[in-house]
Simulated scan of single mutants.
Amino acid sequence: MSQITMIEGADRGAIVAALRGLLAAPGAITIPGGSTPFPILSALIDEGAVDWRDREIWPNDDRIVPEDHDASNTGKIRALLEPAGARIVTLAEHADVPHFAVAWLGMGPDGHIASLFPNTDPSANDPQSVRRLTPDPLPAHAPFDRITLTIPALVNTDALVFTMGGADDKRAVFEAAMAGQNDLPVARLLRAARARGVPVTVFA
């Protein structure tokens, strides 16, 4: 059975410290886009406590746009982590996705994780590790098709970490998912993690 650890009111320093420990072990990691991870990653780079050299970094997901587009997760991740020596992977269908040392995720208020929105009906038994899909409705701030890791790829990890930015609406959705009170993508992911015995840390 997986263990879920909720860390209340964690500031950036606490999240940086936790990730520093998780990233001490070698191995590929997958990280989210959005505004939350980049200041945390910048702090980890600045303190020099993580060896990024030749480490594979996989985006959880991306918009189908060129990497130099403002909406590209991969482009932003590459600009930040490639100078530190990391190898940034561009998501592609039929990619050979590795086992991750850490899968770091965010979550939307609708319970989506990566680009697995409720309308995409993600499955814990998806035979593919990467899928191209279209959210419905398309988010107004990023109206693009997506490419995303699937639930089996995301739970093929030694540890799952969620950062939710302290939003109360997100926390309520997450807690309902933990309790089995909804069937949103995050709930499906947590069930799959539980079945695999993957530990989950949540910065709420």
Results as ranks from 00 to 15, higher is better:
62 D>F: 02
148 T>P: 02
37 P>R: 01
17 A>G: 07
78 R>K: 13
140 A>I: 14
127 P>V: 08
79 A>H: 09
163 T>N: 12
169 D>S: 15
135 P>M: 02
76 K>Y: 00
1 M>C: 09
18 A>M: 10
160 L>F: 03
140 A>M: 11
96 D>A: 15
198 V>D: 01
41 L>D: 04
109 P>D: 15
99 H>K: 14
155 V>K: 04
204 A>N: 13
37 P>Y: 00
109 P>W: 05
45 I>Y: 02
164 M>C: 06
162 F>D: 00
198 V>E: 00
77 I>H: 01
174 F>Q: 01
143 P>V: 07
124 A>E: 12
194 R>D: 14
112 H>I: 03
140 A>T: 13
110 D>H: 10
64 I>L: 15
195 A>H: 11
166 G>C: 07
45 I>Q: 08
77 I>S: 03
118 P>Y: 04
103 A>M: 08
170 K>W: 06
22 L>A: 15
47 E>N: 15
143 P>F: 06
49 A>N: 12
66 P>F: 10
163 T>Q: 13
175 E>S: 03
120 T>G: 00
168 D>Y: 00
130 V>I: 14
4 I>C: 06
121 D>K: 06
62 D>V: 05
153 A>R: 03
131 R>S: 06
83 P>A: 15
133 L>R: 01
63 R>Y: 03
13 G>A: 15
20 R>H: 10
166 G>R: 10
60 N>A: 14
98 P>E: 08
80 L>W: 06
199 P>M: 07
36 T>M: 03
203 F>R: 03
50 V>K: 07
44 L>C: 09
89 V>M: 15
27 G>L: 09
164 M>P: 01
189 L>V: 05
133 L>E: 05
